[in-house]
Amino acid sequence: MTGPVPLDLTADPIDLTAALVDVPSVSRDEQRLADELEAALRAQAPHLEVQRCGQALLARTNLGRERRVLLAGHIDTVPIADNVPSRREGDLLYGCGSSDMKAGDAVFAHLAVTLTEPRYDLTLVLYDCEEIEAAANGLGRIEREHRDWLEADLALLGEPTNGVVEAGCQGTLRVEITVRGRRAHSARSWLGENAVHAAGEVLRRLSEHKAREVDIDGCLYREGLQAVGIRGGVAGNVVPDECVVVVNFRFAPDRSAEAAEAYVREVFAGFEVELVDVSPGALPGLDRPAAEEFLAATGATPTAKYGWTDVSRFAALGIPALNYGPGDPNLAHTREEHVDTKLITATTEALRAFLS
Rank of each mutant, 00 (worst) to 15 (best):
T303F: 10
R174N: 13
D105W: 04
E266R: 13
I132M: 11
E30F: 08
V246P: 02
E292T: 14
L275K: 12
D148L: 13
A211G: 11
I142G: 07
V175F: 09
H47N: 07
G218A: 09
R147G: 12
N162R: 14
D12E: 12
L173S: 00
R87V: 05
A56L: 01
L33V: 10
E349I: 07
A39C: 13
S27R: 00
L70H: 02
V234F: 14
V26M: 09
A260G: 08
E176N: 14
G285Y: 08
Y306Q: 13
V239Y: 00
E208M: 14
E337L: 04
L322H: 03
R42N: 11
R141K: 15
G192A: 06
D15S: 13
W190S: 13
V84Y: 08
N62R: 15
R212E: 15
R52Y: 07
D215I: 15
L331F: 09
L139G: 06
L63R: 13
A135I: 14
Y306D: 12
T345A: 13
Y94W: 02
D35G: 07
A235E: 08
T172E: 11
E258M: 07
V165F: 01
N83M: 01
P79C: 10
E193C: 11
D310I: 01
A45M: 09
R67L: 11
L71M: 09
Q55Y: 13
S98T: 13
I142L: 10
T178C: 04
N330I: 11
A252Y: 03
E89C: 12
K305M: 12
E274N: 10
C169G: 07
V69C: 10
E208K: 10
S25N: 06
E176T: 12
W308I: 09
V238Y: 00
R335F: 12
Y221A: 03
V278R: 08
Y324H: 09
E36V: 09
L150Q: 05
A112L: 11
V165K: 00
C53E: 12
L286H: 06
A198M: 14
S189Y: 15
H110N: 09
D100H: 00
A18F: 08
V107Q: 00
G54I: 06
G299T: 06
R180I: 08
A18H: 06
D277M: 14
E258N: 07
I14V: 15
H209F: 15
L355V: 03
E242W: 07
V264I: 11
G233D: 05
L92D: 14
R141I: 13
V179E: 08
E30R: 00
E166I: 00
A353F: 05
T348W: 06
I344M: 05
V50R: 02
V179D: 02
G233W: 02
S312D: 09
Q226R: 15
E89M: 09
E66V: 14
P85H: 10
L317I: 00
T77N: 09
